[in-house]
Write a protein that binds this DNA or RNA. Structure first.
Lengths: 159, 159
DNA sequence: TATAAATATGAATTATATTCAGTATTAATA
DNA sequence: TATTAATACTGAATATAATTCATATTTATA
């Protein structure tokens, strides 16, 4: 399911992905016009992209401020290797406010992206959730002052 | 357009956001059943959320490996303050492979998220794009070995 | 409480997704 | 290269869903 094997996307597939990445609620008819083919053919390809797990999810980007998540922070964590790396990573993943967990190369072990309403709730989160995870040696928090670009989309290659 | 003023989302709005975040292609009828109200009423609320810029975009999450973007990296940049902070940030934003640009507190100035196919193309990117930006004092690259959680979604508050 | 504004309903209409049989195209194989 | 098999596309028919709108209900405000 997760691993892709014999994926071979042609330029039509890539064009579909580009369109759907830009607007997942685009109609088949609109895409079909754009691509100069029948709606049913487009639909067939989309279904195939879903099956092949090329398309992971149709989602909605929400203004964080509108739902009171104004504080964004990146947290670097170092942990002792007494427990497996993925074990700790999964502990981190369980925390609701944690949006991303990456295992990274270098001195630190994990890089975590967190959203909270404000610095007070970030503090609370550190105290109540992060500190509870065993074998963590150090925590370094980087507060984001301003986000200039946030393109959750991928740059689909030309060909 | 960007700044939210008198936004007041009730629990129905939040429920809609939760559903659409999970699946932006969910039908109105399905949502209406879930929320026990008429499809037209749901539609009206959705349109309003779009207008209010609470809903930013309907997008499609694509498996990065499927489009040959297997390398994820975070890059910390320090810059001299000879030029305004946002100027440099916008230069960084122009780079296609750059997914996110954050202005951060602390010693470094910027945190940038980048996706490329492999380390070679990351190198090339550094040489051809990042190095071209004036007044950059230092660059520190963190390679992601494995992503354990990648929830681009926000945790919509209960109430 | 009276009035206005906002929100909801449900039926009618319009638009879109989905299905499917037939056809074309492409790829594989002898 | 000819033949076959597999894959992809088309277009019409059908099913499903979005959208509109007149009316009703609820909520907020004077």
């Amino acid at each position: 399911m997760t691993i892709e094997n014999n994926i071979n996307l042609d330029h039509v597939d890539l064009a579909i992905l580009r369109l759907m990445q830009e607007n997942s609620r685009i109609s088949n008819i609109h895409m079909a016009k754009e691509l100069e083919m029948a709606p049913s053919a487009v639909l067939e390809r989309v279904k195939k992209l879903e099956q092949k797990n090329v398309i992971v999810q149709y989602t909605t980007r929400i203004n964080p401020a509108a739902v009171d998540l104004k504080l964004l922070a990146f947290i670097s964590l170092k942990a002792s290797h007494s427990i497996g790396c993925t074990t700790t990573a999964h502990e981190l993943s369980k925390i609701e406010e944690v949006q991303e967990v990456h295992i990274i190369a270098g001195d630190d072990c994990y890089l975590v992206k967190v959203r909270t309403s404000d610095s007070a709730s970030l503090m609370a989160l550190m105290r109540n959730s992060f500190s509870k995870i065993p074998n963590i040696l150090s925590i370094r928090t980087t507060i984001v002052l301003e986000t200039v670009k946030e393109q959750q989309q991928l740059v689909i290659p030309k060909k």
